[in-house]
Amino acid sequence: MSESLANPLLPAPYRVLRNKRNTHDVFTLDVEPVKRGNSTLFSPGQFNMLYIFGKGDAAISISGDPTKEQPLRHTIRRAGVVTQALEQVKPGGVLGIRGPFGVPWPVKEAEGQDVLLVAGGIGLAPLRPAMYTLLANRDKYGRIALFYGARTPEDLLYLSDLEQWRGRFDLQVCVSVDTAKRNWMGDVGVVTKLISKASFDPLNTVALVCGPEIMMRFSVQELKKNEIKSGNIFLSMERNMKCAVGFCGHCQYGPHFICKDGPVFRYDQVQSLLGKREV
C-alpha cells in the first residue's frame, strides 16, 4: 500500500521516465516513485489520480503489466486541461499521484473459464493489465479472445502488443475499425460484430468490457445474444471524479460511487441504469 493512502487526498511525487506517443492524441507516461517505499503495485482495472503542478487531477487507468516489476504506466488521451499538460511532460518531470483506487477486473475469479476482452478506443488501456495477467497465467484459463474496436487504423493503440498477441496460437485477437482508407487490410465495422464469430463456451465465459458507454451497451447486447450470463459480464464505467475515495460525490451513478464501488461493475449491478438518460 502506498504511503499516500494514509491521507487519500495527498499525492505522492512520481518521476516521469518516459513520455511515448501512441497516436495523434494518445500518449503513455511511465513513472516511478521519487521516494523509495511508494509502491507501483496495482490490480488490473484500477486507476490513479495524476496531478500536474498547479493544473489539477485526472483519473487515469493503469495500463502496464502488473505481473512484472516495471514503472507505473498510464496511457492517456489528450482531452482536457490536465491531460493537455500531461502530454507536455518531459522525462525527469515530477507528477503527483494518488492511488491505486477502485475495484479491479475479476481476473482471479475468471480462472477456469473462457475470457473475452471487449475494448473500444482508449478502453484498451485498462484492459491491457488484465490481458497481461491472463497471459502470465495462461494455463489457468480456457480460451481467451480480445475484440478491439477503434476509430481508424491510425487510432490503434499498442501495435507491438497486438502483433505479439496475434502471433500466439492460444489467443484470438480481432481488431476492427469504424472506418478506414483502402490501404487498411484489416476488418472494418463495429467491434460488437466480431463477438459472435469467436468460439467460446457461453455458459463458462467471463467478458470484460471497456469503452464508451454506448459501445459497452451494444457489446452487452451482443454478449447476451451469445448467451453469456449477466453475472459474467463486467464493465468499466466512467464519470467525473475529484477525490477518488467516495467523499466528493461527483462520480455517483445511481447508488454507486464509480470511484470506490467501481470502476469495474458486474453488468447486473448497473443493468437498470445503463441506457437511462442523465442518471
Partner: peptide, 10 residues
Amino acid sequence: CFCSTVEDVT
C-alpha cells in the same frame, strides 16, 4: 449534503 470539489491554484 457532503459533495465537494477542488480548486488548484498557483
